[in-house]
Nucleic acid binder design. Structure first.
Lengths: 346, 346
DNA sequence: CTGAAAGCGCTTACAG
DNA sequence: CTGAAAGCGCTTACAG
């Protein structure tokens, strides 16, 4: 029955004794098709191991059954390794797509590139998830463009009152506050913050603001010498820690805006003869897989990547269907491990 | 100039004052097109921000500019986490695709599913990379089917003399041998192996065979009580370690077939009051990001995921072009950290 | 409930 | 070097 070329809906129609239109309807689950007819079509499909050609169907129907994950990164970051936190998000998004029967197209974009144009216009996907890092003020304009041209997309990141787009992110403010409150409970009085604290990096900034709120609520001094910029990498964490130490302002706790920063800082603290948590308490953010295994185990804030992936995909699907979707913040929960138990011996 | 619908090659043709066929040729880089004409077309493309419709072009030209990564996993494994080693491969493959201008379609398949049919027949991708784990003897038949139906695909995994398909993998035998030789140099005499050692899991089996070769070459006994099955997970590593301890056969080193297994084993050793590396030397395989951070830092075998991703993508592209491609083995290098320095105090 | 027909936006012989 | 035309394999009005 199989001709020389691939099996098409015409072959199925022939075998099932119906028209090609009916095959198409039966396969798309149209209610217009008689049950008996549908069964015969189904049998023919199985007999010939037929699959609908996605390109033909997408071309005609103007939707693709595909979602795109646009992963963008700041080109300044070391190219060889992907942030483990994003890797984990990627895994979770992939699973969520599979569950919904959508394909996932993945694309890495150097931050400098014209990523908004590429996907939106070539219509490869029904919707886009944006995931990455970089200077928010740099790409905010592009988000506005995407919104203006009607692209269906969602962003993972900070949820801000004045943003142009819809985003899903962790509750960074509460996460940051929880860390600082925990430090204060442990008896820490001079808590440093390692990470960018400006609207260029709104997720870090929210973590900083939560931290600052807790510090001030406790009547402690918010010393600007105790904040050092860092992006999310071990190397940057090392540098920030060196900067902090060089200032010679005393501190008894370090809140790193990400686990990678914390891991870098931990190395530098050890090299300077400072023991964590005996001399300095330490905490990170993200709960990457490595956090449990560093020595001492790292106190951090868990971002629920599994839930995040599902919410991102479900919301995007709703957006595509034209249903109303709002930005959403996921709870971020403090995970206390040994690194923050100030004063304790190893 | 833009009609109500999307911009098509006809709009470009109109604006550039040429036929639609010429636009198509110019855009595909055909040598038949006059340079001046090509320039005019290019201008029109930019003026209208035109993108070729991928579905239309794929439908017609029968190739998609897309590669698929089929990630399959054994359903027995905990669903929530992806093996960090595979996550790293995924990152590297994604980057390699981007560099080659190909899109990457990612799909997770429960191992039980009919993954061979899905992609091959619906022609969503020009070629497939298979990545995952599971019982080789279970899926070997499917590989044969894929080959028989002419699917362009490559598999990450063991490179065996009698396999039906083309694969790229690390040199597991030499990696395993290097670990055992290193243990022997440290003075270890009774080296245990944690991991499946049968043709069901050929990568682990090759690591085992390398280990066994070194043990025998050194004139040491290969005691079957010192081998316990495990799949690549922390939990399974814990169970295997418990099994090994319950046998009460003495051992002074443990070679875990993966880092995840090693990390599980390390926990159990500690719980039983055995210190690594003072009482027992320990090594893993993969060099996942966490390996450097466990306490003590884990000796392991580095699989070069970056090179692996590039080779996989480059080879698949050659395969698609009809060029000859062979299975390839990548060097795997021993990374010595503290966990294997038998007898040393922490 | 079903069929004949148009058309989605391209690529590629075919004919100059 | 260029254009007119066929056709890739579907979906979906349109007409019964």
């Amino acid at each position: 029955m199989r001709g020389k070329g691939k099996t098409t809906s015409f072959d199925i129609a022939h075998l099932a004794g119906v028209s090609q239109s009916t095959v198409s309807r039966a396969l798309r689950g149209s209610p217009l098709v008689n049950e008996e007819t549908r069964r015969r079509v189904q049998e023919a499909v199985e007999a010939l191991n037929y699959k609908v050609d996605k390109h033909a169907s997408s071309l005609r129907a103007k939707h693709t059954g595909t979602l795109a994950l646009l992963f963008f990164e700041d080109p300044t970051v070391d190219e060889s390794h992907i942030n483990p936190f994003f890797l984990s998000m990627l895994g979770s998004i992939t699973r969520a797509c599979a569950r919904q029967g959508y394909d996932l197209l993945i694309s890495f974009q150097q931050f400098s590139h014209n990523w908004h144009a590429d996907f939106a216009d070539s219509k490869k996907a029904d919707g886009i998830i944006l995931l990455g890092y970089g200077d928010y003020l740099d790409y905010c304009g592009r988000l506005e463009q995407l919104v203006a041209q009607g692209t269906r997309f969602l962003r993972w990141g900070a949820v801000l009152p004045d943003q142009p787009d819809i985003s899903v992110g962790s509750d960074n403010f509460h996460g940051g506050r929880a860390v600082a409150e925990h430090f204060i409970e442990q008896g820490c009085r001079r808590i440093a913050f390692l990470g960018d604290a400006s609207s260029h990096y709104p997720e870090f900034f929210e973590r900083y603001r939560g931290y600052a709120a807790a510090v001030e609520a406790a009547g402690l001094e918010l010393d600007p010498r105790l904040q050092a910029n860092a992006e999310s990498s071990e190397r940057s964490g090392r540098e920030a820690m060196e900067t902090l130490l060089a200032r010679e302002a005393p501190f008894d706790a370090v809140f790193a805006a990400s686990d990678l920063i914390a891991i870098g800082a931990l190395g530098v603290l050890n090299e300077h003869g400072l023991q964590v948590p005996r001399d300095v308490a330490l905490a990170g953010f993200d709960d990457i897989p490595t956090a449990r295994f560093v020595n001492p185990p790292l106190t951090t804030v868990l971002q629920d990547t599994r839930q995040a992936g599902e919410l991102l995909v479900d919301s995007l699907l709703r957006l595509i269907r034209g249903e109303p979707v709002q930005s959403a913040m996921l709870p971020a929960s403090l995970v206390v491990r040994r690194s923050s138990l100030y004063g304790q011996l190893r």
